[in-house]
Amino acid sequence: MAIRHALAAPALLGALLITVSGQALAADVARASFGQLSTGETVEAFTLTNNNGVSARVITLGATLQSLVAPDRNGKSADIVLGYATAADYEKYANYFGVSVGRYANRIGKGRFTLDGKTYQLALNDNGVAALHGGKQGFDKKVWKVLEVKSGPVASVTLGYTSPDGEEGYPGTLTVTATYALDENNQLTIDYRAKTDKPTVVNLTNHALFNMAGEGAPEGAMGNVLTIPADHYTPVDAELIPTGELKPVEGTPFDFRKPRVVGQDIRDGSDPQLVIGRGYDHNFVLNGKTGGQMQLAARLEDPVSGRVLEVLTNQPGVQFYAGNFIDGTTVGKSGKMYRQGDGIALEPQVFPDSPNKPHFPSARLDPGKEYHHQMAFRLTIAPAQ
């Protein structure tokens, strides 16, 4: 059963509890203001909560995951994603914390690609050498429209944005939706869909940075233990663009097929790839089939608290970024400075620079087709050792 709220509802929907066939179903959706931007645009926040103490807050600016609260093995709750307390801070700082990135997540080399014989030039917003995360005014900087809010066994909010033909240099009018849904199994699913009226390229993902010890924890996130089921990764050049090689992880610091502490080898100066990226900032080629049902892309655990995150996706790759460029110049929502290594991004995606690498999975979207990226963050608790 689901309850649909009219978009003209009051600013606060409030916590709901409904009973069907004698069973209590969690149905908590809270709607509130999250402040204003310098443009005068209002940003709203939607908090989804289940009966297990898990909650997710999504804001309309950038269709952003602003908070994800999870209990540990002792029942102590912590917010495990980096973020800011105000809309003004999200507008001011370009850290991509929790945002929905597009049209093309990650990098496109030289900001240029060719489609059906025509070359498109994008903004070089990554140190002047590449297009990054959709450009100077990507989807993360747009206030998305609220399309639907549902309560019931699964609480959800659907946001939408229409990107006009030529925005940031991309062809075609692209109509996009992002649905965040929290269930009673402690799984937050993010469902991205897009349609176009001209051939274009699309690669949408969420850029949450996690610390399973809790955002702002003094020890940072380098003690988190990571598993990625990938036999290969895509090495990068000096501009952080994939060379096109699919390199085996065997015998390298990139082998996360078995659980590995993130900080174990991150400072290994003998590996040129770690030097180039200032640590991990690489795409991993996931094992198994893609394009259908979601499969495991990564598992992240804090051994001390027992909090576990599993990232699921139907996409072929996952970008592992260890927060190498966070420099201590911003203060997060809990009043703590964010420093290098304070958060870990695990971004399911098509590979970086796929439009320029024919042997990489295609990011092309044609009229009459639908782009569909389904990803999920599943929360569990590991028993004490």
Score class of each variant (00 low, 15 high):
176 V>Q: 14
224 N>W: 02
195 K>G: 01
218 P>G: 13
222 M>Q: 08
201 V>M: 15
204 L>E: 08
216 G>T: 10
180 Y>G: 13
164 P>W: 03
196 T>R: 07
177 T>M: 00
200 T>E: 07
218 P>W: 14
175 T>A: 15
207 H>C: 02
183 D>Q: 09
230 A>S: 04
204 L>F: 12
186 N>T: 02
225 V>R: 05
175 T>S: 12
164 P>H: 15
223 G>C: 01
220 G>A: 04
201 V>R: 15
169 G>W: 05
214 G>C: 07
190 I>S: 03
199 P>D: 15
192 Y>R: 13
172 G>I: 07
220 G>T: 06
213 A>F: 09
218 P>C: 08
174 L>N: 04
180 Y>D: 05
183 D>R: 03
225 V>F: 01
189 T>Q: 12
187 Q>Y: 00
226 L>P: 03
226 L>S: 01
219 E>L: 13
182 L>Q: 04
222 M>A: 04
184 E>F: 05
181 A>D: 01
181 A>H: 10
195 K>N: 09
212 M>N: 12
210 F>Y: 11
193 R>L: 07
201 V>T: 13
169 G>L: 15
166 G>N: 11
177 T>N: 08
203 N>E: 04
213 A>K: 05
210 F>E: 08
205 T>C: 11
211 N>S: 12
192 Y>K: 02
224 N>H: 04
219 E>Q: 10
211 N>L: 06
207 H>P: 01
185 N>W: 00
204 L>M: 08
227 T>P: 02
193 R>E: 13
222 M>W: 02
222 M>T: 08
185 N>L: 07
192 Y>F: 14
197 D>H: 05
219 E>P: 13
174 L>A: 03
189 T>F: 09
187 Q>A: 09
229 P>W: 00
221 A>F: 05
194 A>G: 12
203 N>Y: 02
229 P>N: 00
225 V>M: 10
225 V>C: 09
229 P>H: 01
165 D>P: 02
216 G>P: 15
164 P>I: 12
193 R>W: 00
223 G>M: 14
177 T>W: 02
175 T>L: 08
223 G>S: 11
194 A>F: 03
171 P>E: 14
194 A>S: 03
168 E>Q: 15
204 L>I: 12
174 L>Q: 07
168 E>H: 11
176 V>A: 06
230 A>G: 02
